[in-house]
Design a protein around this nucleic acid. Structure first.
Length: 835
RNA sequence: GCUCGGAUGGCGGAAUGGUAUACGCGCAACACUUAAAAUGUUGUGAUCGCAAGGUCAUGUGGGUUCGAGUCCCACUCCGAGCACCA
């Protein structure tokens, strides 16, 4: 019989589906295991080789767990809302639903052909109203708890896609999707208060097992800084046309993490939008210059600011100065856009000696640079260099000689500073002006707005969100799902309004509270919404009463192992952790942290190491590989190609190699397996070490070395005349998670009636992990001079004797004075000799 | 600029401080074949040598060690992320 992948793969795919062997059982007595992969966006291009990499890896984990006796949940679904579908719909004049159906059909067929052990009964789709009903419900919960709010703000606007983008979706000032340069537009946007969860999201990282790089990225994204808020009194400068009584505000608050350097503060800077400017307008002598600068800064705000990074700009405020509360000296006040409006207090104390940005500003404006920290007591501080590290305090009155870290607290007290924490994390822009997304289930009611603003309403009828966003009323739970209306045109508009806004019949509605006239919100939710809680829906995908049953969630949560792309390690992981933490706080999710363990896989690049893209025409379609070599070969290849966490280039030649390997496995199984059960000591050693190595490598995602270990063992078998059936079966089982089709076929050929994939995972026997003979490396002065075979466990004396029996080695040692002998049992003997 | 990875044959890569180059690709020779493909066998870091064998090689320069791809210091280059966050 010949190995014909196409035939056997079709056969087993059907058989597995009929017997439903991969279905997860709620409340099974077996230990549960929840393995999760990021569900795909079903684009028109079909499955990508990158999907195959991640899905195969988790499939291997899931299959191994099943064979180890776990009740495994390995689900899949579709993250189907999104721009490409909408764009395609516009282009072809088809409805997005139709396109989505077609695309998911393709993806489903492809995924099935690859033999992933998904539980297809739990398939979900974010665009299904029965699914997004709960996405909307979660949004309303966030709203009710005051975590969603509408705000007028500048958004990043992509003129090509005609959509507002979150900061995270802007890469180098351009749209992440299409590369078009992003513009700034002012718009009312729904925001989610993720910043309220900054501390929880940070703390939660301590309790989970994510690879270090991911934890670090999350931490950096949240960006916690602990510092001090300090008041700098404003001082009227003589010669101004106004008298001091007319000063609009008498101090500026700044935030710093380095209060220990305050004696070196030689000026203060506020950002151009800072209210202190308008408040003191009457005192500012050069108001025209200030206004001009503000106008310029406004223009280059946001994404375009990166271009002016090198040259710092700013204007000195004439007529007003501030007092350094540490030195009590007058220092000048500046306005500059290198100080951000959105962070801290929008004002800083500038310490040019110990901050790079302040230093370059001071150089340009010729401001004094006073070093107040020195790295060592001996070193003389240099005013031409920036030192940003910790050290000893100098030039700072009574604090001289203290360690800077310790000085922070006492100096803070000295200047009456308040300790304060800030985060880099910003609130999440949650509005999109597009058709193909979840409608935001709110209406605007003028009557209710009046009542809220006037305070004329009964207590308890409005939620926290409704009170802080007067007029925006939540739909009642029973009104969900708020379905997308069927429209003729879903083209986005240049005005920045959602296409839904033109749907008068749909937007006109009734207020759920007062039954008066109301208008629907026409923005939809971003892509991230549906994927922020999907792991909960898999647990109970058909539930009509709740997003999932509480008991079932308690049984399955949390996700034991979540693997996905590197590109999602900040945003998607952070957003979904936020939602799940929130759902935990309101008693819906049974755990705060959704993912116990998170890993990420590297990208697959095109041949030659360039990115795969349609425009380059180097995209590899898995279908073609399956046609030519079979799904098993593709799976084995993608695991074998290189370290799982690194990006790697596609190499068609290597697939042929993996196909050859499977042919060899087939060949041995058909021709060399004997009914004999007794194996040689050497073979026992080899199969046991193979079991150990493959088992461990799978756990550490070292799939490439797991495959090569299997190749080595198979090569050994291939060289033998015959191989005992029980040994060979162990080998097939180790290969089963990697190549599920061929192993299932061979397993049945060997006479088994049940599936190999529910058989027991092989165990190794400790006593066969050592071979009888072992090579001993013989060195002279650390240089290898010979290798001799010795019985394992030989002691030093015996080993030396055996080593010296090697003639070549003995020649080196002859007539030499041996100073020292280094001996590592079963590994090495090293004679140190005098020349 | 900052943070985190990484650098090993012609290529992808392997290697708890202990035989560097496993495994695979490619290449070469041979076998099978009328022939080719497929398959199999053998060889394959560089260099000197008929050979036995020697010498040199893990980005660069130092160090620790009996012994360093692996640990330490300095540097170069590549990749990813962040980017005026005070």
């Amino acid at each position: 019989m010949k190995y014909l992948p196409k035939q056997i793969e079709k056969k087993w795919q059907k058989a597995w589906e009929e017997k439903n062997i991969y279905s997860a059982k709620n409340f099974s007595q077996k230990k549960k295991y929840y393995a999760l992969v990021e569900f795909p966006y079903p684009s028109g291009d079909g499955l990508h080789t990158g999907h195959v990499r991640g899905y195969t890896a988790m499939d291997i984990i899931a299959r191994k767990r099943r064979m180890e006796g776990h009740n495994v949940l390995y689900p899949i679904g579709w993250d189907a809302f999104g721009l490409p579908t909408e764009n395609y719909a516009i282009q072809k004049g088809l409805h997005p639903t139709v396109i989505t159906k077609k695309n998911t059909d393709t993806f489903r067929r492809q995924l099935k052909s690859l033999g992933f052990s998904f539980d297809w009964d739990r398939e979900i789709n974010t665009t299904d109203p029965q699914y997004y009903r709960w996405t909307q419900w979660i949004f309303l919960q966030l709203y009710a708890h005051g975590l969603a709010y509408k705000q007028k703000m500048f958004i990043n606007w992509c003129p090509k896609d005609k959509i507002g983008l979150a900061n995270e979706e802007v890469v180098d000032g351009a749209c992440e999707r299409c590369g078009t340069k992003v513009e700034q537009r002012e718009k009312d946007q729904w925001m989610l208060r993720i910043t309220a969860y900054a501390e929880k999201l940070l703390k939660g990282l301590d309790a989970v097992d994510y690879i270090e790089a991911i934890k670090l990225q999350q931490k950096n994204w949240i960006g916690k800084s602990e510092g001090t808020r300090i008041e700098f009194p404003i001082h009227y400068v003589a010669g101004s046309s106004q008298s001091p009584e007319n000063i609009g505000a008498n101090s500026i608050e700044i935030f710093t993490t380095r209060v220990d350097t305050i004696f070196g503060c030689t000026y203060v800077v506020v950002n151009p939008k800072h209210p202190i400017l308008d408040a003191n307008r009457a005192l500012i002598k050069n108001w025209n210059a200030v206004e001009l600068y503000r106008a310029q800064a406004e223009k280059k705000a946001g994404a375009q600011r990166r271009e002016i990074e090198k040259e710092k700009t700013g204007v000195k405020i004439e007529g007003v100065c501030v007092i350094n509360p540490a030195t009590k000296k007058e220092i000048p006040l500046f306005v500059s856009d290198y100080v951000l409006a959105e962070y801290g207090t929008g004002a800083i104390m500038a310490v040019p000696a110990h901050d790079e940005r302040d230093f370059s500003f001071a150089k340009k404006f010729n401001l004094p640079i006073i070093p107040v920290i020195t790295a060592h007591a001996e070193s003389t501080p240099n005013a031409d260099e920036v030192y940003t590290g910790e050290g000893l305090v100098i030039n700072s009155g009574k604090f001289i000689g203290m360690e800077s870290e310790k000085a922070k607290k006492v100096i803070a007290d000295f200047v009456h500073g308040e300790s304060e924490v800030h985060y880099h994390l910003r609130d999440w822009v949650f509005s999109r002006q597009h058709y193909w997304g979840e409608p935001i289930p709110l209406v605007f009611c003028k009557q209710c707005e009046q009542r809220i603003k006037g305070g004329t309403f009964k207590k308890g009828i409005f939620s926290k969100g409704e009170l802080s966003n007067p007029g925006w009323i939540a739909l009642k739970d029973k009104q969900l799902p708020l379905e997308l209306p069927k429209v003729k045109k879903y083209q986005p508009t240049d005005t920045g309004e959602s296409p839904l806004a033109a749907m008068n019949a749909w937007t006109k509605t009734v207020c759920p509270v007062c039954k008066g006239e109301a208008v629907r919100e026409t923005d939809t939710m971003p892509n991230w919404a549906g994927s922020s809680w999907y792991f909960l829906r898999y647990i109970d995908p058909q539930n009509k009463k709740a997003l999932a049953d509480g008991k079932k969630m308690k049984y399955w949560m949390n996700v034991d192992w979540y693997n996905g792309g590197m590109e999602h390690t900040t945003l998607h992981v952070l957003y979904s952790r936020f939602w799940n933490n929130f759902l935990y706080d309101i008693g819906v999710s049974p755990v705060a942290e959704p993912y116990k363990k998170r890993t990420s896989h590297g990208m697959i690049l095109g041949e030659g190491g360039i990115k795969m893209s349609k425009s380059r025409g180097n995209v590899v379609n898995p279908d073609g590989v399956v046609q030519a070599y079979g799904a098993d070969a593709l799976r084995v290849y993608e695991m074998f190609m290189g370290p799982f966490d690194q990006s790697i280039a596609w190499d068609p030649g290597s697939i042929a190699g993996c196909s050859r390997f499977l042919n060899k496995v087939w060949d041995i199984s058909m021709n060399k397996v004997s009914a004999r059960t007794s194996a040689s000591e050497d073979l026992k050693y080899k199969i046991n070490t193979t079991i150990k190595k493959v088992s461990e490598d799978i756990e550490s995602m070292s799939f490439n070395t797991a495959v090569s270990t299997l190749m080595i063992f198979v090569n050994t078998c291939y060289a033998l005349e015959e191989i005992p059936k029980n040994v060979w079966e162990q080998c097939i089982k180790l290969l089963a998670p990697f190549a599920p089709f061929i192993t299932e076929e061979l397993w049945h050929q060997l006479g088994h009636k049940k599936s190999i994939h529910i058989d027991m995972w092989p165990r190794f026997d400790e006593k066969h992990l050592r071979s009888a003979m072992t090579p001993l490396v013989c060195q002279i002065n650390g240089k290898k001079r010979a290798v001799v075979e010795i019985p394992a466990g030989t002691e030093k004396e015996g080993a030396l004797k055996l080593a010296l029996q090697d003639r070549g080695f003995a020649t080196y040692a002859k007539d030499k004075e041996v100073i020292k002998i280094i001996f590592v049992p079963d590994k090495i003997i090293n004679l140190i000799i005098k020349d």
